[in-house]
Design a protein around this nucleic acid. Structure first.
Length: 741
DNA sequence: CGACACACCCACACACCAT
DNA sequence: CATGGTGTGTGGGTGTGTC
């Protein structure tokens, strides 16, 4: 509440716009007018002051006017974060120190134009961060259309940001590659993939689906048989665009505001350049999924002002031309890296997930099936004419042959293969056939080949298709693949595929089992909050983007969260508010507990503590001088100015700065119901009491505690309440109800 | 009124299961 | 086992309503 107000500009575009016109006579823009003018002009904005000579001065000004001072370079994904510097070498939103001074002098958030520092391109191209800086039409390499054949350029992944300032340099990119045995670069082996692993079963055929000329030259008798189309269904649902947007907007005040500036009026939000870049980036990192719906639906989790439908449309219609390159993936669709660990740019698009059958494929399948039948029938090799029956056939083999064989045909008087007609014969076709066929013809999977056979070849007719194909060739025409032969009845109650509207999501989620309000493990991290905080803010999704979750691993991970997310949406968002009284109560408890649990002398704990094992801590942890030094660092990290949305970043920072493995810090956060205040206590007690998790420590939930909370009797509940206090019990119940534990 | 955001469509590739 | 039934969501759109 009250927090925002002046300027909640999510995107640079809007940023400028907002100031551009709505400034009114009273000096306030329309959107800002409503709330506390005293919040400061930089309220909700964050700055990293890179220019040393003015740092002190500028930081003071920023703080004095309600802004946040960043300790490291922003990721570039949030338009509420700026670099203050006279130069822009990282392609981040950069303003001059003069901008800060001028704003402060007039006590108004001024337009950026005139104060923006253009990106000084080092050499390679970078990803534009916003229009303001890139309207000059970047170099623009290739067109998507040309992606077909191109040399592989070995581009570096985002030369922008980071480097020195350990800002998670697209942490995901080198992250989560696998919990590789040998340990990984930063210690990714962590959080995400441990929490869940929903698989996106990609069929892995290899590349080069030899593009058959498939030009429809409308042959005489196109292999189209039945069914124009069935009933054009009347969709029963109204196009009320509620959807994600609304359900999310209801969620939190902060979120709400975040959205408001996108959503000018009604329900449609314009795409900002930031969002555009974000979408492109995700597509580049998931090139095999570029045509799917789900990828865009997943993206929409991070860009909640738009639905999967609209993001997909946006990409297809506007952004695809700007794709320019993608990152190289292996045949599983996983990103590959060069020796330096960088992603590799390429202009060659990988195969997508499903391949259309082309005429050649249909034809060779038909011929292969025909040959199979021929062999079965006559037990003669169609090419050599040699008998397939041998002395050393086992009894079962001989029996099988006897069954499939046409005994009415005299040996030696079999027709030739071309004379032979399959006729009504539909089988049997041994599974082995499709298996080996798929091995030899990896453009489709075994299942797909079999299905093609069943649904198309059999329907159309094997002989007929062979005839058709040969005939077309003879006429110098290009045969077409079979089509329009699937005629599966529409089943009621099944949502139309390929519709990722807000409605669809809502409907889906409400059909799913009701678990009160769920947050996903991903959001579980986001749920971290201190009890002192009041409401938890699940964050603007773009802030999550900040956190960098965009490689394919992560998106897979995210896709596994979809069900849960739907739940949240359907829950309408009341889920994670820490009601005032609860927060109050927890705060009180905390204060009372301090003496007993927080004032353990860290110097009394040897370093490294015996419980500090490799699976919980990174190598750099063991570089600390003492337990105190480690705890100081922990305190340092958690006292940074994280927004509730930045749990992932917190976890990342804990990993990088304090050497706590992500899995471990994530599990701690879970044990604490997200209450950061208890974080240092966890380590103190763990080391000091030599127990992980430490037992009998208020605020630290053990498995048994949760069990008791779920099923305990009055007596054990009483004990539990004594341990944690009523406030935490209340919050824990919500955690459990939301499936977070 | 055109451009854009978003909803909606559907054939079918690929999958898995029961019989 | 071979086979049919059928779930799922891709791939490539089109339709509709708002900005």
């Amino acid at each position: 509440m009250s927090q925002k107000d002046d300027f909640e500009t999510p995107s640079t575009n809007d940023f400028v716009d907002a100031v551009e016109h709505p400034i009114r006579d009273d000096g306030k823009s329309d959107i800002e007018s409503h709330e506390n003018p005293q919040d400061g002009i930089f309220q909700d904005l964050a700055f990293y002051v890179a220019q040393e000579d003015v740092r002190q001065e500028v930081e003071n000004l920023i703080k004095a006017h309600g802004g946040t001072v960043l300790r490291e370079l922003p990721s570039g994904l949030s338009s509420k974060e700026f670099v203050v510097s006279s130069s822009n070498t990282a392609d981040l939103l950069t303003v001059t120190a003069e901008y800060i001074r001028a704003c402060c002098a007039s006590n108004v958030l001024l337009k950026l134009s005139g104060f923006l520092v253009a990106f000084e391109e080092p050499g390679a191209d970078t990803q534009p961060q916003n229009d303001d800086m890139t309207t000059t039409e970047a170099p623009k390499p290739l067109n998507v259309g040309t992606l077909a054949d191109g040399a592989t350029t070995n581009g570096q992944e985002q030369p922008s940001t980071s480097k020195k300032l350990h800002q998670p340099p697209n942490s995901h990119e080198h992250g989560n590659v696998k919990p590789a045995p040998g340990g990984s670069i930063t210690g990714q082996n962590d959080s995400a993939e441990n929490l869940l692993q929903i698989d996106v079963t990609t069929s892995s055929h290899q590349d080069e689906a030899g593009d058959t000329p498939q030009n429809p030259t409308t042959p005489t008798d196109p292999p189209v048989d039945k069914s124009e189309h069935a009933l054009s269904s009347t969709s029963d649902e109204q196009a009320s665009q509620v959807g994600v947007m609304n359900s999310l907007t209801q969620k939190k005040p902060a979120d709400e505001v975040a959205k408001q500036r996108y959503v000018t009026a009604h329900n449609k939000a314009n795409f900002t350049s930031e969002e555009d870049e974000f979408i492109l980036d995700v597509v580049r990192k998931n090139p095999t999924r570029r045509t799917t719906h789900t990828l865009f639906d997943e993206i929409s989790r991070f860009v909640p002002t738009h639905t999967g439908n609209s993001i997909r449309h946006r990409y297809r219609v506007y952004l695809a031309k700007r794709l320019d390159f993608v990152y190289q993936v292996d045949n599983q669709g996983k990103l590959v890296r060069d020796e330096a660990g960088n992603l590799i740019r390429t202009t060659v698009l990988p195969k997508s997930l499903k391949n259309k059958f082309v005429a050649d494929e249909d034809y060779s399948l038909a011929v292969s099936i025909k040959r199979q039948f021929y062999r079965d029938l006559y037990q003669v090799d169609p090419d050599t004419g040699k008998s397939l029956i041998t002395e050393d056939d086992g009894p079962s083999e001989a029996a099988r042959k006897a069954i499939t064989m046409d005994t009415t045909v005299k040996r030696g008087s079999e027709p030739t293969l071309s004379e032979y007609r399959v006729g009504e014969r539909r089988g049997p076709v041994p599974r082995e056939f499709f298996k080996t066929y798929a091995q030899m013809n990896p453009s489709h999977t075994e299942n797909a080949w079999r299905d093609r056979f069943r649904k198309f070849l059999l329907t159309y007719g094997i002989d007929k298709y062979i005839e058709y194909y040969d005939h077309e060739l003879a006429q110098n025409r290009v045969p077409e693949a079979m089509k329009n032969l699937t005629n599966r009845p529409k089943r009621p109650g099944v949502p139309t595929p390929g519709n990722y509207s807000g409605n669809a999501k809502k409907r889906k989620s409400s059909e799913e089992e009701q678990i009160a309000q769920g947050e996903t493990p991903q959001e579980r991290q986001i749920a971290f909050t201190s009890a002192s905080g009041g409401a938890v803010d699940p964050s603007s999704s773009l802030a999550m983007a900040d956190v960098d979750l965009l490689d394919e691993e992560t998106l897979k991970f995210i896709s596994g969260l979809r069900r849960d997310l739907s739940k949240i949406e359907s829950a309408g968002g009341t889920a994670f508010e820490y009601p005032q009284e609860i927060a109050e109560s927890i705060r009180n408890d905390f204060t009372n507990e301090e003496a007993q649990f927080d004032e353990i002398d860290p110097d009394s704990i040897p370093f490294p503590p015996p419980l500090a094992t490799n699976d919980l801590f990174m190598p750099q942890f063991f570089g600390f001088e003492s337990t105190r030094a480690f705890l100081d660092k922990i305190n340092d990290v958690i006292s940074r100015d994280y927004e509730a949305s930045q749990a992932e970043k917190l976890v990342q920072d804990l990993c990088e700065d304090a050497g706590v493995r992500k899995t471990f810090s994530t599990s701690i956060l879970t044990a604490l119901s997200g209450d950061l205040m208890v974080f240092p206590r966890y380590f103190l007690c763990m080391f000091s009491f030599k127990a992980n998790p430490p037992l009998n420590v208020p605020g630290i939930w053990t498995r048994e505690d949760d069990e008791t909370l779920r099923h305990g009797d009055g007596q054990s509940m009483k004990i539990l309440t004594d341990k944690h206090g009523t406030g935490r019990i209340e919050m824990r119940k919500r955690f459990i109800a939301s499936d977070l534990v």
